[in-house]
Amino acid sequence: MSTDVRTQPTGVAGAGASRASAARGWLDARSRFLPVVATFVLFVAMFAAGSLRHENFGSPQVFANLFIDNAYLVVLAVGVTFVILTGGIDLSVASVLALSAMVAAASLEAGWSAPLVVVAVLVLGAVFGTLQGLVIHFFQIQPFIVTLAGLFLARGLCYVISVDAIAIADPTFRAVASAYFVLPGTSVGVTPNVLVAVAVVLVAVVLLHLTRFGRTVYAVGGGESSATLMGLPVARAKVGAYAISGLCAAISGLLFSFYSLSGYSLTALGGELDAIAAVVIGGTLLSGGVGFVLGSLLGVLVLGTIQTLISFEGTLSSWWTKIFVGALLLLFVVLQRVLVRRRS
């Protein structure tokens, strides 16, 4: 199968037909982007509403704090996006996050040097994800079940390491945790975590949209059998997506340990739901093949804004967060459903 068939789907058609199909393609593209645009509009509207209600809400620092407080969730959601794009699901991410933070804290306590710990944790996460991917692909066990076992395994290993929280006293980690940059030309401060999260998002965007691997991920999500019959490296893309998810969870764990300066086995309990909710609110279809990493970033920002709004509100109790997130999920799911129906 030659590559130009794939890269020029509309170019071979006649002039009149190509005009019609171009218009349809544009419509398709528009409806493909629509959930992301809707998420963006929602985010802006919520932020604007907050700014109108509360005097200090509209400051750039509140906006920056969304990133500071949710940097770990951004990275987590990016990893999950890859897996969901292939049509799978990864329930283990929050447990791998906790395990990574735990391993980092424990090995630092045992006297390992900070760079070694960072490398070890990243390798651990990637290996964990890869193993899950291998089992899912080669033994054809449902991703839901495999990553559920992964969830239990990683969370259990946290308890094995320590039931109590381990504080991090390492000077390098403490230095990173207390570091604070003021963005040039503004008075807005951000932490290194934010830079890492933004970097992860950028790398993910490049990987998904500008590489062969990224195209294969979309193709696998669109139809695994078709992708296989086209001769695409399905195994590599699928296992790769789980490996990336594991790696992102490990990065996320490191970010969390910078944020909290400790490892604790109950860290991010239920965080996999937040990550999946962010991905869905960001416009990615759980059936795979459709979605954007930037959408997931917006999804996390929306979740963060809800939390900030509720804390600004003062009188609302924290459980309203859950109800709001559920309602938003519903809104976006119904929106997607309407779009998909209209397209087909």
């Binding site: 699901i89 739901l273 999946i276 909710a277 869905v280 759980l286 059936s287 459980w319 309203w320 967060t321 859950k322 109800i323 997130v325 559920g326 309602a327 999920l329 519903l330 799911v333 119904v334 459903r337």
Partner: peptide, 16 residues
């Protein structure tokens, strides 16, 4: 809606 998402809505909101 796909069942996994449809019930995810209540799973998230339910404890709230």
């Amino acid at each position: 809606i796909q069942p996994i998402i449809a019930t995810l809505v209540l799973m998230t909101a339910g404890r709230g």
